[in-house]
Computed example of a mutant assay.
Amino acid sequence: MSRNAKINTLLLLVVAALAVLPLALGLGDGKEEPFAGADAQAEAAITELKPDYEPWFSPLYEPPSGEVESALFALQAALGAGVLAYYFGLRKGRRQGAATATGTATAEPADGPATAGAAPAKS
């Protein structure tokens, strides 16, 4: 096994352990939702500190369940990742295209490719 393959295998095992261990050990705060988001934790802290607090705004859309909310969040993250990947891929492609164009421009004369030994074109 090559050195790169060993490193990749080790990294894959670390990522798998980071994903599986919290679920297997049941980490969380012990409440009904062990992995509550920051919004739920902030709401609980505000309610504890100031029970009569009235929010300024209400959500425009309230998902029917936590699963739908999680799915919408995952969709939002996937769309954002897709936009970023497209942008960086486009930049890399343009940079490679510019490098190729620069490389061919310096390798050929300004009037076009060399035609040594070719017969002149008939009109």
Rank of each mutant, 00 (worst) to 15 (best):
D39V: 14
A36L: 01
K92Q: 10
L12D: 15
E32C: 01
N8P: 03
E67H: 07
L84G: 00
T104F: 14
G37T: 06
T9L: 15
G112S: 04
N8Q: 13
G30Q: 02
P22V: 03
G82I: 03
A40R: 10
L27Q: 02
L25Y: 03
V20T: 14
L21H: 03
G97Y: 06
P64W: 03
G26K: 04
Q76M: 12
Y53R: 03
F73T: 09
A19G: 02
G97N: 13
R94K: 12
A105K: 13
E67C: 01
G28R: 01
K50T: 09
E62N: 11
Y53S: 06
Q41C: 08
K31M: 02
P59F: 03
V20C: 11
A110T: 03
T102R: 15
L60W: 05
E62Y: 09
E32Y: 05
G30K: 04
A107H: 09
W56D: 14
N8A: 15
P34R: 10
T47V: 01
Q96G: 00
A44I: 05
V20Q: 06
A17C: 11
A44D: 07
E108I: 10
G89T: 06
L23W: 08
L90W: 15
L12K: 15
D29C: 05
A110G: 02
A16M: 11
P51T: 00
A77C: 05
L13W: 10
L11W: 09
P22T: 04
P64T: 12
G28K: 00
L49D: 05
L72W: 12
L75C: 11
A38G: 03
L13T: 02
Q76F: 15
L27A: 03
A71E: 11
G93N: 07
L13M: 10
L75K: 12
Q41F: 04
G37Q: 00
Y53L: 05
K92W: 11
T47Y: 01
A99R: 14
E108S: 08
Y86F: 14
L21S: 07
G26C: 06
G30E: 02
V68S: 05
L11H: 09
G89P: 00
A74G: 00
A85R: 09
G82D: 05
G93L: 10
A99M: 11
D39A: 15
A105G: 09
R94N: 14
E62W: 03
V83H: 00
